[in-house]
Design a protein around this nucleic acid. Structure first.
Lengths: 116, 116
DNA sequence: CTTATTGCAAAAGGTTTGCAACCGA
DNA sequence: TCGGTTGCAAACCTTTTGCAATAAG
């Protein structure tokens, strides 16, 4: 809950193993899914790689690097108002949204600039 | 390219098989990925189920039904301007974004209302 | 004692890949 | 003839599941 990054289930597994060496990956998946279902955490699906999880549940925007796959919070204006706008033009029921910018993270941008 | 829905690779496969009965699912995946890479079509990742593909490549917003998994275009205001806003507050390079609303589509909303 | 949670291993998707056969310039 | 595409089957990766064993209340 305290971390600022957006770990995959595998990463959470690796980390929690230091404290609970006998825990299994299945249990990690089970509990992350559970937490996501009850809204304690958020699940972030990316176009490639595995899902990522986020302890921050307030509305905010994510950036996904198409090169290294990292996920970063973008602290820009709150765009929750879009839900209402969308709701008016749509006969279904809107419960939320996910906004994912994509491109190159600062790290990978440098890698591309320098060297071949 | 002409369809308005957002077929999965499997759906495309089933359909194209009528004209090319010997085509394989791998070829469908290969060509959909290729088209997506060169920007001729768009790939839409959903939190559950398989990826979907979209022949519409102009900026627009999608809705994903968490019950039946369908994907629908939402014709609301163009929010491309967000890319610029985001770019200013971010040291990496933003190349685009994907916005996915989620909730219940009109169909599934009715199913929930009536019966049981 | 009773119910809920876990570990393990296997299964289940969905997608990609190696490779030989094939097709089109 | 030669490079690019394809079909097939197998591999891959991520996630889920069945079930017996274990832990918790």
């Amino acid at each position: 809950m305290t971390r600022q990054d957006h770990p995959t289930a595998e990463t959470v597994y690796m980390n929690i193993r230091k404290d609970f060496p006998r825990i299994s990956l299945a249990t990690v998946y089970r509990n992350l899914s559970l937490l996501a279902d009850i809204g304690e955490i958020r699940k972030i699906s990316t176009p490639d790689g595995p899902d990522r999880f986020d302890a921050r549940i307030d509305p905010h925007v994510h950036f996904h690097c198409s090169r290294c796959g990292c996920v970063i919070d973008l602290d820009m204006e709150d765009i929750s108002y879009l839900d209402e706008t969308a709701g008016k033009a749509f006969a279904g029921k809107i419960e939320g949204h996910s906004i994912l910018f994509h491109g190159l993270c600062p790290n990978c941008m440098n890698l591309n600039t320098e060297a071949s």
